[in-house]
């Protein structure tokens, strides 16, 4: 005796969402056999977002390296993760052959090892006359003229993450990426950052910062065509407290709503955090603040509550604060509480 069959009455997008919480491989063999309707849902789910690495990637790519394979049109998101491998050129060529089959691809992630990013240019695997229109691209392939040409051929990209080394000339046409709303980079120089930010409608940027580049890098963030609302900064040196960035950030990005600073190589104590309090008054619309650093193990959550309260008093628009102990603070019934 079956139940009332309410599950099949759910819209397909909800069924796919439910299926996305199942685990591959343990749940899918049984799920694929439920019936033809759920078989279609399961197949769409399996191929909708494909995340594969090393040997599995080779098997998958070889299995779909066939013109006209029906699975080509199911794949809308593809992640190829080779960060733990050195990729042979034969595999690069396989990626280059398969990508032009994926007409429905919207999100592509192609990650390579630091060694390959530093020593091999692999952006040539991206087809310049691709049939797909990406919304999202993440790659650690090295910056190159081919990479800029590929970006120029993908005008619908909204979210871009370039994590490769920038050791080659990189010149992006001013008309490229007209809708870009978020950009993440790891190794971009201030000059490359300025090229990507300038005159594009960015709302969200994530960068890695070293002290000697800070002024130029932060200055380039003012060049976007719309105000940047969300900024994440990973600080990788310990030359100056990250809180010293607050005045320039407030001057450059006064409309910032979310600021996330991660400075794990720096050590903070309560005095430095309290000293930063007046600097936060310069952010009139800041709602979400993260400040992660190697904290002083001697202080406790009660001490962090004091910091959260002080910061929120200086910057009353704040809604949540994450401090070095990793807890999220928010205002509840008039006081700052931890989640």
């Amino acid at each position: 005796m079956r139940g009332p069959g309410l599950v099949p009455s759910l819209p397909p997008e909800l069924l796919s969402h439910i299926a996305s919480y199942l685990q591959w491989p343990e749940d899918f063999p049984a799920f694929l056999l439920v019936n033809s309707h759920f078989h279609a849902i399961a197949t769409r789910t399996l191929y909708h977002t494909v995340y594969v690495n090393s040997a599995r990637a080779v098997r998958l790519l070889r299995s779909i390296d066939v013109p006209g394979d029906r699975r080509h049109n199911l794949i809308t998101s593809l992640t190829l993760n080779f960060t733990k491998n050195r990729v042979l050129k034969q595999l690069d060529l396989l990626v280059q052959r398969v990508l032009p089959h994926l007409k429905k691809l919207k999100a592509l992630t192609f990650e390579v090892s630091s060694y390959d990013s530093a020593w091999r240019g692999q952006a040539w695997v991206f087809p310049l006359d691709a049939p797909f229109h990406l919304r999202s691209l993440t790659t650690s392939a090295r910056f190159s003229t081919h990479l800029s040409a590929f970006l120029e051929s993908q005008p619908e990209i909204l979210d871009l993450s370039l994590r490769g080394f920038a050791t080659e000339p990189f010149n992006l046409d001013q008309a490229a990426l007209p809708h870009l709303r978020s950009f993440r980079s790891v190794h971009s120089s201030p000059q490359v950052l300025a090229q990507i930010v300038t005159a594009r409608p960015l709302k969200s940027v994530s960068i890695t910062l070293i002290a000697e580049d800070a002024v130029n890098a932060l200055g380039s963030l003012a060049l976007s065509s719309t105000p940047i609302k969300r900024l994440t900064i990973l600080i990788i040196d310990a030359s100056a407290p990250a809180t010293e960035l607050f005045p320039q950030l407030a001057a450059t990005l006064p409309q910032l709503e979310a600021l996330h600073i991660v400075a794990l190589v720096q050590t903070y104590d309560l005095d430095i955090m309290h000293a930063a309090t007046p600097l936060l008054a310069a952010f009139p619309g800041l709602r979400y603040l993260t400040f992660m650093a190697s904290g002083d193990p001697a202080y406790d959550l009660g001490d962090e509550a004091g910091v959260a309260t002080d910061w929120a008093t200086a910057c009353p628009s704040l809604r949540t604060i994450i401090l070095p102990k990793g807890k999220m603070w928010f205002r509840k019934e008039g006081i700052w509480a931890v989640s």
């Binding site: 139940g3 009332p4 069959g5 309410l6 099949p8 799920f31 056999l33 439920v34 019936n35 309707h37």
Partner: peptide, 13 residues
């Protein structure tokens, strides 16, 4: 698979 059909309220077709 049979338990999944029971929970989901569907028949094998």
């Amino acid at each position: 698979t049979e338990e999944m059909r029971e929970i989901l309220g569907v028949e094998n077709d």
